[in-house]
């Protein structure tokens, strides 16, 4: 038997997907986050090259 959830709780337990669907500004923020992650990844690669250079000298 399942108890009906209180309205407030039901709203909080919705999935991430539904949350993003209803708050479209957060879709834009997710996209900005993805771009930052990409740039960070690139930064890591440059860092690795510089570290290799330091090891040699």
């Amino acid at each position: 038997m399942t108890l009906p959830l209180p309205k407030q709780l039901a709203r909080e337990s919705r999935t991430m997907y539904e949350f993003l669907e209803q708050n479209s500004l957060f879709v834009v923020l997710t996209i900005v986050l993805i771009i930052w992650a990409g740039l960070f990844f690139y930064l890591l690669r440059i860092d690795k090259r510089v570290a290799k250079l330091e090891d040699k000298s």
């Binding site: 993003l20 669907e21 479209s24 879709v27 997710t30 996209i31 993805i34 771009i35 990409g38 740039l39 990844f41 690139y42």
Partner: peptide
């Protein structure tokens, strides 16, 4: 290399947006 990075970012951001 940078173009590839931008290309991947454009593809991923675009498809996330397209989903919604």
């Amino acid at each position: 290399g940078l173009g590839l990075l931008f290309c991947i970012l454009a593809t991923v951001t675009g498809s996330v947006w397209a989903q919604f």
